[in-house]
């Protein structure tokens, strides 16, 4: 029974977070706009050479998703801090990990929707032909998003409640995300430019392994960072 109660708690938190987001829309719209703006800046920095743009597309896409996504992570706790909603949330009975799971799933949905738009725009801007197996590309990118969102939701629980939250979250999060980003970028690049050496599968399984490690670690550690 306890497990079913936790599932209900998770559902309630996901629903609450997404409803807040849906009713304001301002957050989502501005995060997507930021992602597209970053892509445009990358395009300008890399120059007009079409081949150079295509080669760098995978890296630029992921960095745009990362930079825009970081805003979402802090927001997801910041809205809780107004009016002491986070304290109220902690006072409700139930396991702490359910709060983390709820936040994580809500952020996952938020960032995935953002990613679909940013990637679609990015493929056009960087002149990459949309691959025929685009559902696999989306699935692969979802794996990367899980890693980014797990660590992002975890670190934002601290940074959003500290001084200097704008600088602290990237400072803590980016070095931690290097393995996930590296694997996600390599897999995406191989997917887009052709997998001549047959390495794609390895990178995808590596990415999946990183996701599992970081999900387990953040779920275990969340209790310690949320209770104080």
């Amino acid at each position: 029974m306890a497990f079913r109660d936790d599932m209900r708690r998770i559902r309630a938190i996901v629903w609450k977070d997404l409803t807040t987001e849906r009713r304001s829309k301002a957050g989502f719209n501005s995060v997507v706009s930021l992602g597209v703006t970053i892509l445009v800046l990358f395009g300008l920095a890399l120059g007009p050479d079409a081949q150079a743009l295509r080669d760098a597309a995978a890296g630029a896409l992921w960095l745009a998703v990362l930079f825009a996504g970081v805003l979402a992570f802090n927001r997801s706790y910041q809205v809780e801090l107004d009016g002491g909603a986070l304290e109220a949330l902690l006072l409700y009975p139930g396991a702490r990990w359910a709060i983390f799971a709820g936040k994580l799933i809500a952020n996952l949905i938020f960032v995935s929707l953002m990613l679909v738009i940013v990637v679609a725009v990015g493929l056009v801007l960087f002149g990459v032909r949309v691959p025929a197996q685009w559902p696999s590309l989306l699935g692969l990118m979802m794996l990367g998003v899980v890693g980014i969102v797990a660590l992002g939701t975890f670190y934002a629980a601290m940074s959003s409640r500290s001084r200097a939250r704008e600088v602290l979250l990237p400072l803590l999060l980016y070095p931690m995300l290097i393995p996930v980003l590296l694997a996600a970028m390599m897999a995406t690049k191989l997917f887009l430019s052709g997998d001549l050496m047959n390495e794609l599968g390895t990178w995808v399984s590596l990415l999946g392994a990183f996701d599992v490690i970081f999900l387990v670690a953040t779920f275990l550690a969340f209790e310690y960072v949320i209770e104080v």
Partner: peptide
């Protein structure tokens, strides 16, 4: 104390993972 302990532990877990991933790269 609580927060930096969590960050320290996750950071330590991450170091060999970074090493592995960059090595493959």
């Amino acid at each position: 104390g609580q927060w930096s302990a969590a960050v320290g532990i996750l950071g330590a877990i991450n170091v060999p993972i970074v090493w592995m991933s960059v090595r493959w790269w």
